[in-house]
């Protein structure tokens, strides 16, 4: 069978199929459906220093081939995660990526430092791109200098593989990618959700409790793919592709565009087995096509001369 393992920073992941933060809970719910240790990694819901109650409802709404969410990073806090959830994830044999969010540079670094000491966390993914919180989040992800500074601060706080998750809600995503690479990121993952809105015409008001929300699902795939393609050309560190990946064919597109690994998000709500199915279908495809290594396939997009 083909070796699908991928190297990102210090980490060797057994395959390139990960789950996306916020769509997989703390991983435990999915273990009812399948053995989550089969996945390359599971990325848990964004963790902050203190527990966060999140936004008032309504928080979600379906849109054409997609959905909007405005969860507001509700989470149990990093300490509770390490105490109560991480041990169970370890028992399940899951490879864990901890997604991190903070309001200030110091807070990002503190959360990363706590995770640095936690056994069973393979990598840290910095969310500098959440569109659903007023402070922090997007501010860091939209400004190359702020992005550089927060990544530098976190780099000092953790030895673990450091992935930085980028926002698509910027003019030039490659600029941010280059800035975080220079600051010491081992990898960039993209994209987070695209900022959007729905209006209830009868009530003349926004449907979501927080007015705007983040768009995910198949609707955003072309945008995500384009960004992964552009960023892959600009940075040397591995790129993790995210956005509307529902099937193995979607995943193949991201690999061709230059992604070393992919994350499955909204698809987990549509079919809880999605990530596993994508992995199995990829294995079969590579086998059938006689492709011997993933690295040979990644970025092998035929360029049309213009």
């Amino acid at each position: 069978m083909i070796d699908l393992s991928v190297q990102i920073g210090k980490s060797r992941f057994k395959n390139p199929v990960f789950t996306a933060s916020g769509t997989f809970g703390y991983g435990l719910e999915f273990s009812v459906f399948y053995d989550i240790s089969q996945l390359g990694a599971v990325t848990v819901k964004g963790l902050s220093l203190e527990p966060v109650p999140g936004n008032p409802g309504p928080r979600i709404f379906e849109t054409p081939s997609g959905m909007l969410n405005a969860i507001g990073l509700q989470n149990v806090g990093v300490r509770e995660f390490v105490r109560s959830y991480l041990p169970r994830l370890r028992e399940l044999g899951a490879t864990v990526i901890a997604n991190v969010y903070g309001k200030t540079e110091e807070e990002y670094a503190s959360v990363a430092a706590i995770l640095d000491e936690a056994e069973g966390v393979e990598a840290v993914e910095l969310n500098i791109s959440c569109p659903n919180v007023k402070e922090g989040g997007i501010a860091f992800g939209a400004n190359p200098l702020l992005a550089h500074n927060v990544v530098s601060a976190v780099r000092k706080a953790t030895e673990k593989t450091l992935i930085v998750k980028l926002s698509p809600n910027v003019t030039d995503i490659t600029e941010i990618a280059v800035a975080v690479e220079e600051a010491g990121a081992d990898s960039v993952s993209l994209i987070n959700t695209l900022l959007g809105m729905v209006i209830d015409v009868e009530r003349k008001r926004a449907v979501l409790g927080s007015t705007t929300g983040g768009l995910s699902g198949p609707a955003i795939k072309p945008v995500a793919l384009r960004m992964v393609y552009q960023v892959s050309k600009k940075v040397k560190i591995p790129v993790i592709g995210i956005g509307g990946i529902m099937t193995y064919r979607d995943a193949l597109e991201f690999f061709l565009a230059g992604a070393t690994a992919i994350q499955v998000g909204t698809a987990n709500f549509v079919n809880p087995l999605s990530a596993l199915n994508i992995l199995k279908d990829l294995e079969k495809y590579f086998e059938d096509e006689g492709i011997e290594s993933l690295s040979q396939y990644v970025g092998s997009l035929a360029e049309v001369e213009s």
């Binding site: 916020g22 719910e29 979600i60 709500f269």
Partner: peptide, 13 residues
């Protein structure tokens, strides 16, 4: 309104 129905999206609170 629900997205996942089994506790992972935190959309239905």
């Amino acid at each position: 309104y629900m997205a996942c129905g089994f506790g992972v999206c935190l959309g239905c609170v």
